[in-house]
């Protein structure tokens, strides 16, 4: 029983990160209906931004201070929001009215470009680098269970951000515009919605989420390297589809499910090597039973 609870706690910590990344995928998908392959690389850039600014901030705010930590997150999010908007402006916007597959391949190209550039010895290099401690990490003992403060932070941040995103999309003017663009771009443009700005904003928001997820991921990981985003990115992508892509709570649900699954499978000897296969297996099973994902609504094609 303790083992079960302990795995559940670890799984939630991991799942929260997947959930955050999946939120970004899903937001961009909701507005543009395309999978932003470069999302996982923006996550990596977020972690590296933190790596470089953390020592500077430490000089001002002191080592492992909460204020400094928040500042690192804010800077990483801001930098990545700019990068995300830049990518959209340069690579995706010119293809807005072109076939979706062209955009998809461009996204893959952008992803490869970022990865290979980052791996170059003159940039980050491909060797893992140690990530600075942003917050003192302590463990809370509940009976036989151990909860790390890091995991609590991750889960907390994810839930807060989910609520914030939901609020932005459902309750604000920008959110209304986002939903309008998602529903019908041309009609939205005719109603005076600044489509370009809204899409740009969505990318910025999604990329900021990726950056935050990246920093949280880096805080748990032994080191960071240019391909660090690929595995969590892929799992988050699975999570987003699992929950019903385009659906915010679905992405978070999918993320947590996947995190739990991974830790449970990882805890059982013999199964741990098959973690990825199990994650995909479950995704496939769910999609075959519910073709639009767990929380997605299937649409009837009009004939």
């Amino acid at each position: 029983m303790d083992w079960f609870l302990q795995q559940a706690i670890n799984g939630l910590g991991l799942g929260a990160i997947y959930a955050l990344i999946a939120l970004g995928y899903t937001m961009v998908y909701g507005v543009l209906r395309f999978i932003n392959f470069a999302h996982s690389d923006v996550l990596m850039l977020g972690a590296f931004t933190a790596l470089y600014v953390a020592p500077q901030i430490e000089k001002v705010a002191g080592a492992e201070s909460p204020v400094g930590c928040v500042m690192v997150f804010v800077v990483a999010a801001a930098v990545c929001a700019c990068i995300g908007m830049l990518i959209e402006r340069l690579a995706y916007r010119p293809l807005r009215n072109r076939p979706k597959l062209a955009v998809l391949i461009t996204a893959i190209g952008v992803s490869l470009l970022i990865e290979y550039t980052a791996q170059n010895e003159k940039v980050f290099g491909s060797a893992p680098q140690p990530f600075p401690k942003l917050l003192s990490d302590y463990e809370i003992n509940l009976g036989n269970l151990v909860v790390s403060s890091n995991d609590i932070l991750t889960v907390g941040v994810t839930i807060v951000l989910l609520v914030a995103m939901w609020w932005i999309v459902q309750k604000t003017r920008v959110g209304t515009a986002m939903r309008a663009v998602s529903y019908n771009q041309q009609a939205a443009a005719l109603m005076g919605v600044p489509v370009d700005k809204i899409i740009s904003f969505t990318f910025g928001l999604g990329s900021a989420l990726a950056a935050i997820a990246g920093v949280l991921y880096a805080m748990k990981a032994p080191g960071i390297e240019p391909l660090m985003g690929v595995q969590p990115g892929l799992r988050a992508f699975v999570a987003a589809v699992l929950g019903g892509i385009g659906n915010l709570p679905g992405a978070v649900l999918g993320g947590f499910l996947l995190g739990l699954l991974e830790t449970f499978a990882g805890g059982i000897p013999g199964l741990s090597n098959y973690r990825d296969a199990i994650a995909f297996g479950i995704l496939i099973l769910i999609l075959l039973l519910k073709p639009a994902g767990l929380l997605g609504r299937s649409t009837i094609e009009k004939v």
Binding site: A91, P94, L95, R98, P99, A102, V103, I105, T106, I108, G109, V110, L112, L113, Y116, T117, N120, E121
Partner: peptide, 20 residues
């Protein structure tokens, strides 16, 4: 050293210039 960077840049450029 720059091979894969150029390769990915070419993919992007080709898609931007010749999406069909």
């Amino acid at each position: 050293e720059y091979r894969m960077i150029i390769y990915s840049l070419l993919i992007i450029l080709l898609m931007l210039l010749r999406p069909e």
